[in-house]
């Protein structure tokens, strides 16, 4: 049984540690916030200029001056702070954010990530993704293992324009979890499989070579 979107978010939440400052991307990464253990203190950064993102407001209490990077209305927490976009990206590019969890279109065996444009189709823009993968200390990508067409997304080499080169540390898909040695030559290691998913099934749907973690 492949993992659901929520299962993938729950698995990504296991990468959180007490005291972490974290930036969550749009889509499945946003769901990670629902899986923060209650005894753990994690501060969410929103790159439009906020630390300490709170939940959605109650009906009738939305504030147009208070949104997240996905332009959704949110709330503040007792320890929240606000700052400019320049300060926000100084945090990101200066290595002050411990973990970034974002979505992906393609990941390569060297840790390259493509997630911001499909040539010939509409180009929406990279937003803060290129800054996040370049500056955040650890980058986790959460995405479906294959495209709707069945084409693999974990590749030897990305075919789409890159968001960053050698930037992905961990990849979580609906089929399993992969460690990527983006700095050295360790390549891709399968460290976990979704329940009932075989190594053969993953190999059949993966272009990149990978080894299997011992145990």
């Amino acid at each position: 049984m492949a993992w659901t979107r929520d299962d993938m978010a729950a698995r990504a939440a296991k990468e959180l540690r007490d005291g972490f400052y974290v930036n969550l991307g749009i889509g499945i990464p946003t769901l990670v916030a629902n899986h923060i253990p209650p005894d753990m203190s994690v501060t969410l950064q929103s790159e439009n200029g906020m630390l300490g993102m709170g939940p959605f407001p109650f009906e009738g209490e939305a504030d147009p001056d208070l949104i997240n990077a996905g332009k959704q209305t949110i709330t503040e927490l007792p320890d929240s702070s606000y700052f400019s976009s320049a300060d926000s990206f100084a945090m990101i590019r200066g290595g002050h954010i411990a973990l970034s969890i974002l979505g992906g279109m393609q990941v390569s065996m060297d840790g390259d990530l493509a997630n911001w444009m499909v040539p010939g189709k509409m180009v929406k823009g990279m937003g803060g993704a290129m800054d996040l993968v370049a500056g955040v200390r650890r980058v986790v990508v959460v995405m479906d293992h294959v495209e709707k067409s069945g084409a693999p997304k974990l590749l030897r080499r990305c075919t789409l324009p890159l968001t960053g080169k050698g930037v992905v540390d961990l990849l979580i898909t609906d089929l399993g979890v992969f460690e990527i040695d983006r700095k050295g030559r360790g390549g891709v290691t399968l460290i976990e499989r979704a329940p009932g998913v075989s190594v053969e099934e993953i190999r059949a749907r993966t272009e990149a070579p990978f080894t299997i973690a011992a145990g």
Binding site: S85, A86, S88, R93, G128, M130, G135, L162
Partner: peptide
């Protein structure tokens, strides 16, 4: 298209009289 942090910093630099700066953001990309 500018990466968001690059855009913010380009503007900050413009206002502060800094003609250019170096960043890791976007290295190896278009």
């Amino acid at each position: 298209f500018n990466p968001q942090g690059t855009l913010a910093e380009r503007i900050r630099a413009g206002g502060a009289g800094i003609p250019a700066f170096f960043t890791k953001t976007g290295v190896g990309t278009v």
